[in-house]
């Protein structure tokens, strides 16, 4: 019973923290550019405002447009409930492993793409095509990283990986370094951030993620935004729990604090990368993703000998 309460608490903290991290990354970027920028709490205000409004749906849209936002939100929450936030007792730790986690997350990507196609606008289809290209190229890298950890800890269950990562010493730090770099690239690709997509612009030639949800409004837009914030935090959580297994105590409250510190540590490089690199041409994206695949494979292959 206590485990279920802890599991639910983890999800609640996760959802509550997600918009703040988005605001935090945005704030760092603007501050480093010499601008003041909105407060960290701005995404919450946006979400509340959008949730109050009623959605407008195109008359050509089918039932997909009605169910897609809910499926996306649910898929993101379910995949979040695999991930240990501050305790290994996650809500779904008894079932499912890294592979289930990744394919549930893939379901949300798929339904966003369907939503983009369903509305019948030309930008939506364009965004969906691009998103699926990037997602399909990013997937093998993510699998390779997860296989590396499954090999390292002898299990594919995320909670067990979490427990073992916090009790063992590093066996092969080389694999860790390469996997971390690969995970960094992949999470930028999956979350439509700068070398792959610019989340701040609505320029029709370049946008990927924004093009798909261009037709969304009101509640549905709020749900899509919340899911994308959560997805970003999901990747940061994976990185902070697996690659930075320090700062872990038996005290639950202290662990929440440590978790937030780790998340902040991992969001700073994202902001710095977005400041220093311009968005890549779309046809260079496969190169970049292939390099991240090479990194992941390099980490994986070092186990071979």
């Amino acid at each position: 019973m206590g485990n279920i309460v802890i599991g639910i608490l983890q999800i609640v903290i996760f959802i509550a923290l997600a918009p703040a991290i988005k605001g935090f990354i945005h704030k760092i970027k603007l501050n480093l550019r010499g601008q003041k920028g909105p407060s960290i709490l701005q995404p919450y205000k946006d979400l509340i405002k959008l949730f109050r409004k009623e959605p407008v749906i195109s008359k050509d849209a089918s039932f997909i447009s009605k169910i897609a936002p809910i499926v996306v939100l649910l898929a993101t929450i379910i995949s979040a409930s695999f991930i240990p936030i501050f305790s290994p007792n996650t809500l779904l730790s008894f079932t499912g492993d890294v592979i289930a986690f990744m394919y549930v997350l893939g379901l949300s990507t798929f339904f966003i793409a369907l939503y983009g196609l369903d509305q019948g606008s030309s930008f939506g289809g364009l965004g969906s095509a691009r998103e699926m290209t990037i997602a399909s190229l990013a997937e093998p890298t993510l699998m390779m990283i997860m296989f590396t950890f499954s090999l390292e800890y002898g299990t594919s269950n995320i909670s067990e990986i979490f427990v073992k990562a916090h009790s063992h010493s590093f066996n092969v730090p080389i694999a860790y370094v390469f996997s971390l770099l690969a995970l960094f690239f992949v999470s930028m690709a999956e979350n439509a951030r700068i070398p792959f997509d610019n989340p701040e612009t609505h320029l029709e030639l370049t946008m990927v993620h924004e093009a798909m949800i261009l037709e969304a409004s009101g509640k549905y837009l709020a749900i899509f935004e919340l899911s994308s914030y959560m997805k970003l935090l999901l990747f940061i959580s994976i990185a902070s729990n697996i690659f930075l297994p320090f700062l872990y105590s038996s005290n639950m409250l202290l662990n929440i604090l440590f978790y937030i510190i780790k998340v902040i540590i991992f969001s700073i490089p994202i902001a710095l990368l977005e400041l220093s690199v311009a968005k890549f041409r779309f046809f260079r994206i496969p190169d970049l993703l292939m390099i991240s695949f090479a990194l992941a494979t390099l980490g994986f292959v070092l186990y071979y000998v």
Binding site: P286, D287, M290, F293, A294, T297, V301
Partner: peptide, 15 residues
């Protein structure tokens, strides 16, 4: 893209 992919195969082959 193919170059990087071929290099990955080269690495696996060498190992």
């Amino acid at each position: 893209t193919y170059s990087v992919l071929i290099c990955i195969f080269i690495v696996i082959f060498s190992f």
